[in-house]
């Protein structure tokens, strides 16, 4: 499977950008960009995605390096959690009204 944008006709590879908006929060995907190498990718990411102090840290990852789950196998792949609602606190209703539970 090819990564979108990663075709032979593109001179610069595609990078995915993740920004940490504040200390204590995780990096969140904000979008992608083109850059010839990782140094310029970080700089371009700063210019493109943090013009209004949206972040304190930036990650760039080559789009081609990301492996995703197969979208066609979506149902089967994530099936194991379906029907296991006992994994959620809301499943246990008998304790309703009891404080600090």
């Amino acid at each position: 499977m090819t990564t979108p944008g990663d075709s032979a006709s593109e001179i610069w590879p595609l990078w995915e950008v993740f920004v940490r908006s504040n200390r204590g929060l995780s990096h969140v995907h904000v979008g992608s960009l083109h850059a010839p190498d990782e140094t310029l990718a970080v700089r371009n990411a700063r210019d493109l995605y943090t013009r209004r102090s949206e972040g304190v840290s930036v990650w760039v990852v080559p789009a081609a390096a990301i492996t995703t789950s197969d979208p066609d196998a979506k149902g089967a792949f994530f099936e194991s959690s379906a029907g296991k609602n006992y994994r959620h606190a809301s499943y246990y209703s008998k304790s309703e009204g009891v404080k600090h539970l």
Partner: peptide, 27 residues
């Protein structure tokens, strides 16, 4: 200058969105 820089940024966000559909930036 900030505004014109924003327009450039907006163009890039959108090109990236189009690329997720298989279009290439160069095309």
């Amino acid at each position: 200058m900030a505004k014109v820089q924003d327009e450039a940024g907006h163009g890039l966000y959108l090109y990236s969105a189009a690329q997720t559909l298989g279009a290439t930036r160069d095309d």
